[in-house]
Design a protein around this nucleic acid. Structure first.
Length: 574
DNA sequence: TACTGGTGCGCG
DNA sequence: AAAGCGCGCACCAGTA
C-alpha cells in the first residue's frame, strides 16, 4: 500500500503469525503471512519506518516477550485484552453490548510451560472468530473497540487511557526482560547480619533460634509452637498474656517479658520466610530480580504482581538493589500522589494551593485547617479511605470545612457506591457493579419482614462498598497519572543515545544493555538503571515526564507533582 | 493429597 | 487491634 499503515494487527492464521495492515480510518489494506522465525525481523523493519505503526495484538504477554528476547523493541501498541476490559465496563461507552458479548476477551492469560502467556481458546464462545490470538478475532475485536470509542461520551479521555494502559503492557514486559539489578552478596550480608549465618542443614539461623528460645523460656513452655497462631495464642493465655490476637499491635500494648522476644522472633521469621535465602535462590538469577508484573491487575487500574512479591520489597532489602559497575540508579517517587490527584480532579484550588511546591501536609497546616503535619496526614488519609472513628474520623470534618470541593468529590463517590452505583476515574475507568449477593442483601433489608440482623448486615456492606468507591476514584486516577508518567518517560529514555559495547550491561538483555531503561515500578515510584554518562539526561527525562503527565491529565489546572529523586548505586531510602 | 479460609505482615 | 483503601505471600488448620 502506498501510505504506511497506521495500525498493524498481529495474529495467527493457520498456525503461523500474520499481519493485517490498516490505514488511518481502520480499513484493512493488506494481509501478510509471516513465520515465527521471521516475525521479529519483520516487526523491526516496520518499527524502523519514519512513522512506525501502532501494533495491535491480543495480549502483550503473548507477543512481546518473544520480540524482546530477539532484540526487538516496539514504540506503541494497542493491547486488546486490557482495552477490552476498560471499554466493556466504562460508563463513558454508551453501548457496550457487543463488547460484553465477546467474552473470549475476558479470559485471563495463563503462562505456558515456556513461561510465555497464552489465552484460553474457547471454541464455543459466541461472537468470536476462534482463539483471541487468531488474526480474524483480533481484527474483529479491534473494530468493536474502535466503534465503542467513536460512540463514547468523551473519546479523548478514553483514548488517552487506552494508550496509557497499552504502554503499561509494553513496559511490564520490558521491566521483566531488563530486570532489577540485584546483588546477591549484599542480600546475603543483610540476611547474615540480621538472622545469623545461613544454616547448612535444616535448622534455623542462630539469631532466629535464639529469639525462639527466649520466647519459650518466657512462656515457660519449652515446646511452644510459635508459628501456629491458635497454639501461640493459647500459650500466651497460659502465660497470662490475655490478648485476642497475636498481632504485633496488640502484643506491644502488653507489659510482659515475652513481648519483646516474640516481636523480634516474628520480625526475623518474616524476613526469612518472605525474602530469605530460598527467595534469593528462586528469584534472583544472573544479578537480576525479574518479577512478573500484571498491568491492570487491580480493579482500580493499579498493577498487581505475581510471584516474587515485587510489590512488597521490604525497605530492609533495598541495599541489595545495586547498579552494575559503571551504571547508576535513578530512584524517584511522587510525594503524596493521591491527594494531589484529588485536588486536581475536584478542581479544588485551595487544596492545590496547599500542595503547591512543597509538602502538602505542611501546606494544610499552614492554611490553618489542622494544627500538626501528622494530623493533616491522618485526616487526609481518613477522608480518602472513609475513616469514621478514632483520631482520623474526628479530624475529617475540619478538612471538609477547609476543602469542600475535594471532600465533596470523595463523599459523592462514597454515596454512589453505597446506593449500588458505579463510579469512574478521571480518564473513564469504571468501578465494577455490585455483586448479585450485595444487591440481594440490600433488597432483603428493605423488605417489611426484614430482621434487625438483615438491616445491620446490609447497612454494613453498603458502607463497605462506599469506602471502596470513595477510594476507587482517587486510587484509580493516581494509577492513571502514574501510567502517563511511565509512558512518557519510556519514550524519552528510548530517545537517549546508547553507550558503546564496552560500557554495556549485558545482563539487562539484548534490548536494554546499552541504554538507560526502567528497572522497577511500584504505584508511585520508579527506578531507572542507566549508564553513568547518561545520568543527567535521565534525571531531566524523569522530571519532564512527571510534569508532562500532570498537563496531559489535568491541562492547565495549577497542580504540581514534585518528585523525591535520588541518584545512587543502591535503591536505599534515607 | 489438594483445596480453601483465616491470620499476620510486607508494600503503596 | 487497628481506626480506614488496594494488593501478594507464607503459614497453619480444617476439609474434601
Amino acid at each position: 500500500m502506498a501510505e504506511p499503515p497506521a495500525w498493524i494487527v498481529l495474529g495467527r492464521l493457520d498456525g503461523v503469525p500474520a499481519a493485517a495492515l490498516l490505514d488511518a480510518s481502520g480499513q484493512e489494506r493488506e494481509r501478510i503471512t509471516l513465520t515465527d522465525e521471521g516475525l521479529p525481523a519483520w516487526v523491526a523493519a516496520a518499527e524502523a519506518a519514519p512513522a512506525p505503526p501502532r501494533w495491535v495484538w491480543s495480549d502483550a504477554t503473548v507477543w512481546y516477550p518473544r520480540l524482546l528476547a530477539a532484540g526487538v523493541r516496539v514504540g506503541r501498541c494497542h493491547d486488546l485484552r486490557l482495552c477490552h476490559a476498560i471499554l466493556r465496563d466504562s460508563t463513558l461507552v454508551p453501548a457496550a453490548e457487543d463488547l460484553r458479548r465477546a467474552t473470549l476477551w475476558d479470559a485471563s492469560p495463563v503462562a505456558d510451560s515456556a513461561g510465555a502467556s497464552t489465552l484460553f481458546a474457547l471454541d464455543d464462545v459466541e461472537g468470536s472468530s476462534g482463539a483471541p490470538d487468531g488474526l480474524p478475532a483480533a481484527v474483529e475485536e479491534f473494530g468493536r473497540q474502535r466503534d465503542a470509542l467513536t460512540a463514547a461520551a468523551d473519546p479523548g479521555r478514553l483514548r488517552l487511557l487506552l494508550a496509557a494502559e497499552s504502554a503499561g503492557a509494553l513496559l511490564a514486559a520490558e521491566l521483566q526482560a531488563a530486570g532489577l539489578p540485584w546483588d546477591p552478596a549484599s542480600h546475603d550480608r543483610i540476611l547474615t547480619e540480621v538472622l545469623g549465618e545461613r544454616p547448612a542443614g535444616g535448622g534455623l539461623p542462630a539469631r532466629l533460634q535464639d529469639a525462639a528460645t527466649r520466647v519459650r523460656r518466657e512462656l515457660g513452655d519449652p515446646g511452644a509452637s510459635l508459628d501456629s497462631q491458635p497454639k501461640l495464642l493459647r500459650a500466651l493465655h497460659r502465660a497470662g498474656v490475655l490478648v485476642e490476637s497475636t498481632s504485633r499491635w496488640e502484643l506491644s500494648e502488653h507489659d510482659h517479658p515475652v513481648v519483646a522476644p516474640l516481636i523480634e522472633y516474628k520480625k526475623l521469621s518474616r524476613l526469612l520466610s518472605a525474602n530469605g535465602w530460598a527467595w534469593l535462590d528462586e528469584w534472583v538469577h544472573d544479578g537480576r530480580f525479574r518479577p512478573v508484573y500484571v498491568p491492570g491487575g487491580v480493579v482500580t487500574g493499579r498493577w498487581a504482581s505475581s510471584g516474587g512479591g515485587a510489590l512488597q520489597l521490604p525497605r530492609q532489602l533495598r541495599r541489595a538493589v545495586r547498579s552494575d559497575p559503571g551504571w547508576l540508579l535513578v530512584v524517584a517517587d511522587v510525594a503524596q500522589l493521591e491527594p494531589r490527584v484529588l485536588a486536581a480532579m475536584a478542581r479544588d484550588e485551595k487544596l492545590a494551593d496547599a500542595a503547591h511546591g512543597r509538602d502538602l501536609y505542611s501546606g494544610i497546616v499552614d492554611s490553618g485547617a489542622v494544627d500538626t503535619r501528622q494530623h493533616a496526614k491522618v485526616a487526609l488519609l481518613g477522608a480518602m479511605y472513609g475513616a469514621t472513628t478514632g483520631e482520623s474520623g474526628r479530624l475529617v470534618p475540619r478538612l471538609r470545612r477547609a476543602y469542600p470541593r475535594a471532600m465533596a468529590l470523595v463523599d459523592d463517590a462514597a454515596r454512589v457506591g453505597e446506593e449500588g452505583g458505579v463510579v469512574s476515574t478521571w480518564l473513564g475507568r469504571s468501578s465494577p457493579p455490585p455483586s448479585p449477593d450485595w444487591r440481594a442483601s440490600q433488597v432483603r433489608a428493605s423488605e417489611m419482614e426484614a430482621s434487625r440482623a438483615d438491616e445491620t448486615r446490609a447497612r454494613r456492606s453498603a458502607r463497605d462498598r462506599g469506602r471502596f468507591t470513595r477510594n476507587f476514584v482517587v486510587q484509580g486516577t493516581a494509577a492513571e497519572w502514574a501510567l502517563a508518567w511511565l509512558a512518557d518517560l519510556r519514550g524519552r529514555l528510548a530517545a537517549i543515545a546508547p553507550v558503546d559495547a564496552s560500557a554495556a550491561a549485558p545482563r539487562s538483555g539484548p534490548v536494554f544493555q546499552a541504554v538507560p531503561h526502567l528497572a522497577f515500578f511500584l504505584h508511585d515510584e520508579i527506578i531507572v538503571h542507566t549508564p553513568q554518562d547518561r545520568v543527567d539526561a535521565v534525571v531531566y527525562a524523569v522530571r519532564e515526564s512527571a510534569a508532562s503527565a500532570g498537563r496531559l491529565l489535568f491541562g492547565s489546572f495549577p497542580i504540581d507533582f514534585p518528585l523525591d529523586l535520588k541518584v545512587s548505586r543502591t535503591a536505599e531510602k534515607e
